[in-house]
Simulated scan of single mutants.
Amino acid sequence: MNTKDFIIDESFKLFLARSYDGVSINDISNAVCMTKGALYHHFKSKEELFKLVVDKYLYIPTFTIDAKTNSLYKFILQGNIQAEKKLLFYFKDNKVFTPLDYFSFVSEIFRHYPDFAKKKTKFINAEIEKITLILHKAIKIREIREDINVPLISSSFFSINMGLLSNLVRKNSIEESILILREQNFEFYKLLKRS
């Protein structure tokens, strides 16, 4: 791991546990065992560092599955696997993590990173478009019913996956939250399947 990534990772733990305003440059330099001058060699400001932390760690489910060649069932299966890998990668070894800390972290993003919403809106629209393609294909190959409202169902699938955060708060367990997500997705799939 390079120095910049190490600083970003350690800063994430601090921001998550103590908030943006609760973490000073001194706190970060102490956590990474560097002088403030050395820290400023890598990052212009705490705000710049915070933005890089957000870009790396704010997880919104993304589906790296080919929308044109996969069934809806495979899409859901792969999406669940990818969500689990991401969550375990980011949080499994973080002993101080609590879901409420993560929600606080997310709320601070909109105060300290105003362009974030614009960046993520494009991303979210692209993800929903990918789901729309999958649904159209699933209708065409007669995997699911054709009487569904595709734009609404696309948004609903995306919303179910965003609900992973609320599952984390309710269960305080990554493994249980992933299990609930999997069950939610496949229950929704059963409602759409042709009888």
Rank of each mutant, 00 (worst) to 15 (best):
T3F: 04
F6T: 10
D9H: 14
D9T: 14
F12Q: 02
K13Q: 13
K13T: 08
K13Y: 06
F15S: 01
F15P: 00
S19H: 11
S19L: 06
S24N: 09
D27Q: 08
I28D: 01
I28W: 00
S29N: 09
C33V: 11
C33S: 15
C33A: 13
K36A: 13
H41G: 11
H41Y: 15
H41D: 12
H41S: 10
H41E: 13
E48F: 03
F50N: 00
D55F: 07
I65W: 05
D66I: 09
A67R: 08
A67Q: 11
K68C: 06
T69S: 13
N70T: 15
G79H: 01
N80Y: 03
Q82A: 07
A83V: 11
E84H: 10
E84D: 13
L88K: 09
F89N: 08
F89A: 05
Y90K: 05
D93V: 04
D93H: 12
D93S: 12
T98S: 10
D101A: 09
S104E: 15
S104L: 13
F105G: 01
V106D: 04
E108V: 00
H112M: 07
P114L: 04
D115G: 07
F116H: 13
K119Q: 14
K119I: 08
K120E: 12
I124S: 02
I128F: 08
E129Y: 11
K130E: 05
I131A: 01
L133K: 14
I134L: 06
I139F: 04
K140V: 00
K140H: 15
I141G: 10
E146P: 10
I148C: 02
N149L: 00
V150R: 00
I153C: 00
F157D: 01
F157E: 02
F158K: 12
M162Y: 04
N167E: 11
N172D: 15
S173N: 10
I174T: 09
S177E: 02
L192D: 01
K193C: 13
S195Q: 07
